[in-house]
Amino acid sequence: MLSKYQARAFFLGGTAVFAGIFLVLTFDTHRQIPKQTNADQITPQVAAGKKIWEANNCMGCHTLFGEGAYYAPELTKVVERRGKDWIKVFIKDPEAMFPGQRKMVKYDFTDEQIDQIIAFLDWCGKVDLNGFPAEPPLKKLMQPAADTASNAGGELPPAVAATIPLPAMFEQKSCTGCHRILGKGMPGVMLPNAVTGEVVPAPALDLVFQRKTREELIAWISDPQKIKPGSPMPNLVPALVSPQEVEQMVDFLLGLKAHAPAN
């Protein structure tokens, strides 16, 4: 059986060998990280954003690269998911956008600081993370359910939808973050009502002209919370969407009537 002397040699030898390998790998990692993370794109703006991220301990609720806390969403790909405009409005007053939901701290950031944070998150989203976060593999299986959910609203036939250009503002202003419009955007995102707890789909908007009048649509987009308290649909007006833009959106949606197959 092993003597104490041999046991100590095993400990010291093993530690030395594996610490050595670890240091070599660390050296190599340093060599490779600049390329893998696009370090050349870490502008002073990105660096400033990281400082703000740390100074406010955003990681105390969110994860970034999967590290942090599990109280609020993972933010690595948030710029890709929501768009810069949406984030800008949201940070200024998180509760206004998601009333009654889990709360986020309301910070008094300047516009410049918010741009820095977004630049930092944008850089994070482009780092090669070896496949994280992965595309949900079962999403495809969920597709029929999602389709049914968005079909609560109903869609134009794909062949028709493909011929109609969707104005950029529907994507820029984050509508497609929850709704499907002309085959674009998330299919039937399911979200809870903060008051009733009922989980409802964000309906597709192609056929909304069948369900709502111009006045109703304008009233709804301008202040969903007034019409359905606790609705997961955020208040986007006037912070992100101007009243004028609301009218343009509504006119476009009602205009789709012309494309509806006659029946």
Partner: peptide
């Protein structure tokens, strides 16, 4: 000694389980 030997033998390079998905 044997146990702490095993600890370092596995644990030092085991740090890698935090390096999978952070851009390393």
């Amino acid at each position: 000694y044997i146990i702490v030997g095993l600890t370092f033998l596995s644990g030092i390079l085991g740090t890698g389980h935090h390096y999978y998905y952070i851009g390393a």
